[in-house]
Design a protein around this nucleic acid. Structure first.
Lengths: 233, 233
DNA sequence: CAGTGGTCTAGACCACAAG
DNA sequence: TTGTGGTCTAGACCACTGG
């Protein structure tokens, strides 16, 4: 018995972290039950639960009913990324934001897009190509497909005034999304639009968002050279 | 009064989400206090708190003591990324993992590395260059600097047996890290090591990890063409 | 079936920040 | 100063799942 008391869940969490790091509790080993810990720490079980839940969410602990809690064998760290609206991202750096719609038309999408959007062959979607600029310089090139079946009032949207992303966020409730981050090599088209050299490495985000019934939109964002995404643990 | 009751925090959260999406509660508006909601929903305030805390963490609500809770004006979505150990990432795809140390020596780092590691001019760090392979093919090229002051027993580490990342995870407790994701263009060196064309776009992760007192290590990971990082909301 | 984590409650006090 | 979210408690019941 230590005699020390850990009254806040942060204190409990810190102490548990210390024991994991000091190898007092080794990877793969079971740690004491919540009830035991609450006695040892001199706090309520709910407090222990709060502390351990956080560590489980960040991947350091593995918890299962009936089985118990063990130190994760393969600590898969979880980092959280902020996905801001592009305009806020740019304005947040103190730069001016502008965007222009390069193309807007209904079209039958290529098969990879159709597969992602889960639409029927022959269905026409809205295809939108946009360039976002920071201080007048190309920042990101956006190639987007929107499913008209998922979006009411789409034809009346003025994407020159408000970017598609912002308009959609404001008009269409969405439930989930998936993101893929990768790199590509600038071709002639990207080099021209982004005003960079052909053959430069570019950062790419592919994103789809959906609501209950539909895939709403799929977009590829190709960033100008130098773009970085940053996060901390 | 609806008469409906929302007894679980998930149910409360779903109802709150519904009201946000239906614009019943508009962006920027204050929503009722926890106490009011707990009465309306027929549950304890703690349950409401649990529900709202989750929404605040994911960026949909903005909560402040004394001020209250409002619907976020600029919904900055938070995505969580899994940062696995490379070996597990490769083995998880059913491929075989192998790595080889291309170079290992003590050296005075260039100034950008020294700045990141916060070491004194003239301090010598361990510089380690490694290639990780999946099914025998280059997967990621790793250029790492390790601070000997932060790592006991560094000279006895066998990085040929266990990759530096795994060795460090197992031997050095760390508190935090930061990540930068970007793209680069393959130069002659990268093209040769990764067996790709010069000029190809490559995905890059720069990572630093630290413990209480020191920056432990800084590493640049350059992935072979085709690498993708994926996440969902 | 039984043990463990998951959650709910009612009430209390605390910490922070807006006015 | 005071209102609001943040947290703790003691106890209870539930849900999942391992044995």
């Amino acid at each position: 018995m230590t005699g020390l008391e850990f009254k806040s869940w942060q204190a409990v969490q810190a102490e548990v972290l210390r024991r994991i790091n000091s190898r007092e509790w080794k990877p793969g080993e079971f740690i004491p039950h919540e009830a035991e810990l609450s006695v040892e720490f001199g706090c309520a079980r709910a407090t222990v639960n709060r502390a351990l839940r956080g560590l489980a969410e960040s991947g350091l602990l593995d918890r299962r009913r009936k089985a118990g809690t063990r130190v994760a064998l393969h600590p898969v760290r979880k980092a959280t990324l902020d996905i801001p609206v592009i305009r806020y991202e740019i304005e947040g750096k103190g730069q001016s934001y502008r965007h222009s719609v390069l193309s807007r038309r209904r079209a039958v999408p290529p098969s990879d897009i159709r597969a992602r959007m889960r639409t029927q062959p022959g269905d026409r979607l809205l295809h939108l190509v946009t360039l976002h600029m920071a201080d007048g310089k190309p920042y990101v090139f956006e190639d987007r497909w929107i499913n008209p079946q998922a979006v009411a009032d789409l034809d009346n949207a003025d994407f020159a005034a408000l970017s598609a992303n912002e308009w959609l966020v404001a008009h269409v409730p969405f439930e989930g999304g998936d993101f893929t981050f990768s790199a590509m090599t600038a071709g002639a088209r990207e080099a021209e639009i982004l005003a960079c050299g052909e053959g430069e490495g570019l950062f790419v985000i592919d994103r789809s968002t959906w609501s209950k019934d539909h895939i709403i939109t799929t977009v590829r964002l190709i960033f100008a050279p130098g773009y970085q995404m940053h996060t901390e643990i």
